[in-house]
Simulated scan of single mutants.
Amino acid sequence: MVCCLGALAGGGVWAAGGGGFAGLGEEATGFAEVTPGRTFFFPADLGAHPDYRIEWWYVTANLKDAAGEDYGVQWTLFRQALEPGPQREGWASQQVWMGHAGLTSRETHRFSEAVARGGIGQAGVSAQPFAAWIDDWTFASDSTAGDGLASATLSATGADFSYALTLKSVRPMVLQGDNGYSVKSDHGQASYYYSQPFFDVSGRVTLDGREIDVTGRAWMDREWSSQPLAPGQKGWDWFSLHLPDGEKLMLFQLRSDTDAPFYAGTWIAAGGHATPLDRGDIVLVPLRTHDVAGRQVPVEWSVEIESRGLRIATTPLNPESWMATSFAYWEGPVRFTGTHDGEGYLEMTGY
């Protein structure tokens, strides 16, 4: 859910400390607006939407090796338009790109960041066949059938880690919020938001030159907007959880300096049917904080969804899962126990 492109603008559109986390609450005059009732088309909506100011392609994966050891993988590509208006070619392009890659184990957390200017081929996204890339990091379909993501490959390389994975799913995309219209505040901010939470994964990760075969599950999020946050919203806590029997749960709270937290979530049946959760049905309580990069970050949580009889506690695979990127945040795999047992990912910003 995170977007962190302000560094590419030299502080321009997004400046740290203003307009909500990473400037995502700044006014976006001249850019396209997010409104209810949009119809989504696939694979077209896998591609970029340059009339909107911000956009991201986001994949997280919970993985195991043959010995049962756990790993987590993150792959993200962000796009930001520095100014509205007709799209320009080459070096004149107003699009900038940033990539984040992470690999987490119980003992270590590795990450890398890449930046690029649009218009010169260094980074970009095509819809059909789907391909998203920045430098040699890629997330690309190897199928032209259906929605374009029945089978895909995912790869990235950092200074001391890499991964190359195959993702497969026969499920359709899941529209979050009100048929893809995801409200983020009581002041009307929103994004277009859909997910593919049903990927099966196989492939290989590499840590310090050691190659490790892995299998597991992955979750893709796609969002675009021009102003997804209210100015006072300083950060969020976002969960993507794989429940027993194939069900999925997405939920988040947006924290504010001026308003009560804003909650939203979606309960996803094993067959893919999505049911938005009532805001009053979501209870998130920090259980334990951990000192990460000189900040107290709540790495363990109690999560309750009364209507679904869910009461769980989450614990991180590695509490040191800090992404010390241009806009720093915590992102890592978690496990949970209680009325439901499973695994997933947690992202926390603004701490």
Score class of each variant (00 low, 15 high):
residue 350 G to R: 10
residue 1 M to W: 03
residue 28 A to V: 01
residue 83 E to Q: 13
residue 186 D to Y: 08
residue 16 A to N: 09
residue 171 R to A: 14
residue 246 G to D: 12
residue 118 G to T: 09
residue 311 R to Q: 14
residue 320 E to R: 13
residue 13 V to R: 10
residue 280 G to V: 04
residue 136 D to K: 08
residue 144 T to S: 12
residue 272 G to N: 05
residue 178 D to R: 05
residue 30 G to D: 12
residue 45 D to P: 02
residue 235 G to E: 13
residue 49 H to F: 09
residue 188 G to L: 06
residue 101 A to G: 15
residue 46 L to T: 03
residue 236 W to E: 03
residue 254 L to A: 10
residue 217 R to Y: 00
residue 133 W to F: 07
residue 150 A to P: 00
residue 242 H to R: 00
residue 260 A to H: 05
residue 130 F to D: 10
residue 50 P to S: 06
residue 164 A to M: 11
residue 319 P to V: 03
residue 101 A to I: 11
residue 91 W to N: 09
residue 22 A to F: 01
residue 99 G to E: 14
residue 63 L to G: 03
residue 190 A to S: 09
residue 116 A to C: 09
residue 257 D to F: 11
residue 117 R to N: 10
residue 248 K to C: 13
residue 314 T to Q: 10
residue 285 V to I: 14
residue 216 G to T: 03
residue 286 P to S: 04
residue 275 T to Y: 14
residue 328 A to S: 15
residue 185 S to W: 07
residue 32 A to S: 13
residue 186 D to V: 12
residue 186 D to L: 13
residue 246 G to T: 06
residue 332 G to N: 08
residue 223 E to T: 01
residue 339 T to M: 05
residue 343 E to A: 07
residue 32 A to V: 08
residue 173 M to K: 11
residue 156 A to T: 02
residue 114 A to R: 14
residue 22 A to C: 11
residue 39 T to V: 12
residue 230 A to M: 08
residue 159 A to P: 02
residue 254 L to P: 03
residue 14 W to E: 15
residue 53 R to V: 02
residue 294 G to S: 08
residue 87 Q to W: 07
residue 100 H to I: 10
residue 336 F to D: 07
residue 258 T to F: 08
residue 56 W to V: 05
residue 133 W to M: 03
residue 189 Q to K: 06
residue 88 R to S: 10
residue 150 A to W: 02
residue 222 R to W: 01
residue 138 T to M: 02
residue 348 M to Y: 06
residue 279 R to D: 11
residue 77 L to T: 10
residue 300 E to Q: 15
residue 140 A to I: 00
residue 65 D to E: 08
residue 158 G to W: 01
residue 336 F to G: 09
residue 106 R to Q: 14
residue 194 Y to A: 13
residue 118 G to Y: 12
residue 238 W to Q: 03
residue 134 I to G: 15
residue 214 V to E: 08
residue 214 V to F: 02
residue 190 A to E: 09
